[in-house]
């Protein structure tokens, strides 16, 4: 909103609405934050104290401890926690890197290059985005299990394929990120093509044009694509939970899933202190990413959400 618009809005609107805004926005905001506040407070408990205390809405530990927070990096309470954290981080960085690369290159191809069937191919790819991805989960499991020549398989059978290996996380990397491609395509179409031509006249090759001239212009949309991809992968429990089994391959979300009633079976008494530690490990970095880059999230959401 420009300065003149907000000035005119200030003139035009009357006070009761402002009062309502100043009351409702912070109050509901506090209610929305409450589960996270609870999570942080519970994070200061030792396992023994949490189990022994009658937990109230704002639990305050008698002997606050930082062990749970330190565990994420050092593994003081549970060696595996640091490993889950590392796995989550590696997987997120890897997938985000590829999302940036494939979105940018894909966007360039569909925005700038002219070839037969371009628009049809793009529409086909875009149309697949409306198919619910749940349909692919079981077939993906079967495909991974029957992956040729991997994990003791002959052509299709005999071993476990690439299930329960690092390949589960790696294989999807180079696949084209279709939503990202769509966003970059839209954003590139606003860049005048004369820029490309001028660069070529000045002797820039395709690689230079792509990465030194066009890429820097796409930084805001690339930021949005990387943040949403990173948050999605960081929070994803499906891939590790369903396609891996070994402890050393688990990430923070899948580790929580295994501790929850979904993984441990209904009625199992949950190890809440460990769950809270892992939850903090997932939530705090996600919040940090959000606070540093929220400008791009707001912009990007407006771009994706409100497309005329």
């Amino acid at each position: 909103m420009s300065a003149s618009q907000s000035a005119s809005a200030r003139r035009a609107r009357f006070k009761p609405a402002h009062l309502l805004g100043h009351a409702v926005l912070p109050l509901v905001g506090l209610v929305l934050m409450y589960p996270l506040v609870f999570m942080v407070m519970a994070g200061f408990f030792t396992k023994q104290e949490f189990m022994a205390t009658v937990i109230h809405a704002f639990p305050i530990p008698k002997e606050p401890t930082l062990r749970n927070f330190r565990a994420l990096f050092e593994g003081t309470t549970d060696a595996a926690v640091a490993e889950y954290f590392r796995n989550s981080l590696l997987r997120t960085v890897y997938t985000t890197f590829w999302a940036i690369l494939t979105s940018f290159l894909g966007g360039y191809v569909f925005a700038r290059l002219r070839f037969k069937g371009r628009d049809q191919l793009f529409l086909l790819l875009l149309a697949t985005q409306m198919i619910p991805m749940t349909i692919a989960i079981i077939p993906t499991y079967l495909e991974f299990a029957r992956f040729p020549f991997m994990g003791g398989n002959d052509i299709f059978t005999g071993g476990k394929g690439i299930l329960d290996t690092w390949w589960v996380y790696l294989i999807g990397g180079p696949a084209i990120n279709i939503m990202g491609t769509f966003l970059v395509k839209q954003s590139l179409e606003k860049v005048p093509i004369e820029l490309d031509e001028a660069a070529k006249v000045d002797g820039a090759g395709t690689l230079r044009l792509l990465f030194q001239i066009l890429f820097p212009l796409q930084l805001p949309i690339m930021a949005f694509i990387s943040i949403t991809t990173a948050l999605n992968v960081w929070n994803d429990f499906v891939t590790p939970f369903f396609y891996t089994n070994s402890d050393h391959l688990q990430t923070l979300p899948s580790a929580i899933t295994r501790l929850s009633s979904v993984g441990a079976g209904p009625g199992a008494s949950a190890n809440y202190p460990l769950i809270i530690t892992l939850s903090l490990g997932i939530t705090i970095p996600a919040l940090l990413i959000f606070f540093f880059f929220q400008k791009y999230i707001v912009q990007g959401l407006a771009n994706t959400g409100i497309k005329g």
Binding site: L32, M33, A42, A270, L287
Partner: peptide
């Protein structure tokens, strides 16, 4: 920002808080 925060949290983690 405050209102948007729940959207960036992990469903797995925050449902566990609801379970507590």
């Amino acid at each position: 920002s405050i209102w948007y925060i729940p959207a960036v949290t992990s469903t797995v983690a925050t449902t566990q808080i609801f379970n507590i």
